[in-house]
């Protein structure tokens, strides 16, 4: 069931008895700006389509979710004067377009993965403009069926 707060399907509480990071009301994304965008990103980041045993259907579902995420990001960006951010969003859209064009699963996967990376950068820009901390999916891994927790490196 999808979370009523952020709109994505994540565990109702963090796995392994880990302490929730800023979570409230069973949703770890509340308490910081753009919860739907951050959750939408992480749902894709930890999605089945990125696993070794992903099916073509998983990939097609990911394309649809990416489309929705990019549309929501565009709405959040609105008419803000952020050309670099807008350019990254255009790149994300281009990469998703390429992903949907490719028949070959691996090629399509790579383009979709690039689209997700650009989306992450755009979300980071939006958070920066709001004065909020950066978003790291690794902080939310316990709320998903995460095969592995991504290595986090900040500078």
């Amino acid at each position: 069931m999808n979370c009523p707060h952020c709109g994505v399907e994540h565990f109702p509480e963090p796995a392994g008895g880990k302490k929730a990071d800023g979570g409230e009301g069973g949703c770890p994304y509340l308490g910081a700006p753009f919860p739907r965008l951050r959750a939408g990103h992480d749902e894709l980041f930890y999605g089945r389509w990125r696993r070794a045993d992903a099916s073509p259907l998983d990939l097609r579902r990911a394309h649809h979710r990416l489309r929705r995420l990019l549309d929501e990001i565009a709405a959040a960006l609105g008419s803000d004067d952020l050309p670099a951010t807008r350019k990254d969003l255009a790149r994300a859209n281009d990469a998703l377009h390429m992903a949907t064009l490719h028949e070959d699963g691996q090629e399509s996967f790579l383009h979709a993965d690039h689209a997700l990376s650009y989306a992450h950068r755009v979300i980071g820009d939006l958070l920066h403009e709001k004065g909020a901390p950066p978003h790291s999916p690794g902080d939310f891994s316990a709320w998903y069926e995460a095969a592995e927790v991504p290595f986090r490196e900040d500078w």
């Binding site: 980071g124 920066h128 901390p133 950066p134 900040d154 500078w155």
Partner: peptide, 12 residues
């Protein structure tokens, strides 16, 4: 370092 300040500066 390693707190995201460098990245924030790049965004700026």
């Amino acid at each position: 370092r390693h707190l995201g300040l460098g990245t924030a500066m790049i965004r700026e």
